[in-house]
């Protein structure tokens, strides 16, 4: 059985993945204007390069979601169908991850979720989302 695809940190995302390994969901926070984001070396709002990493609460809302029914990768052969969601964290950034604990026929977009940090392989961590009650 082929092993699962693993996170491939680059310079920009290394603190994010190091954070996951320590059980923390880190996002970028602009020291100049306070905006939150992910995935850019520059503030998306004020273009400052002075960014910090801060802990996000992990709560958010599903922006888009799919149920994957096709085995594109042998490591997922035993998992289809499985759900994947693009979640808009309450702080602003959108984050991609697996979605568990949802029924096959339920509407997913707009659902409230929380982030769980899952160990997907030994010492490899990725965000996974679980539905929660509306606030």
């Amino acid at each position: 059985m082929t092993s699962r695809p693993l996170p491939a940190p680059d310079a920009l995302s290394a603190p994010f993945f190091e954070g996951l390994a320590k059980g923390r969901l880190l996002i970028q926070t602009c020291r100049t204007c306070g905006a939150h984001q992910l995935g850019s070396e520059r503030c998306l709002r004020c273009r400052s390069e002075d960014l910090d990493w801060t802990t996000a609460e992990g709560r958010g809302r599903i922006h888009a979601a799919t149920i994957m029914h096709t085995v594109f990768h042998p490591a997922f052969a035993g998992e289809v169908p499985y759900a994947v969601a693009l979640v808009e964290l309450d702080e602003g950034p959108r984050l991609l991850g697996g979605l568990r604990g949802v029924a096959a026929d339920e509407a997913l977009v707009g659902r409230r979720v929380r982030t769980v940090i899952a160990e997907i392989a030994p010492n490899a961590y990725a965000p996974v989302f679980e539905p929660v009650q509306e606030d």
Binding site: P7, S13, A64, A65, T66, F72, L108, I120
Partner: peptide, 25 residues
């Protein structure tokens, strides 16, 4: 690479995965 690699760790493969997300929205 980077945050984009979360696509494959989550199992979002192919153009179909990406455009399925878009279509869901």
């Amino acid at each position: 690479e980077g945050l984009d690699s979360l696509r494959y760790t989550a199992g979002l493969f192919g153009g179909a995965g990406i455009f399925a997300l878009a279509a869901s929205r």
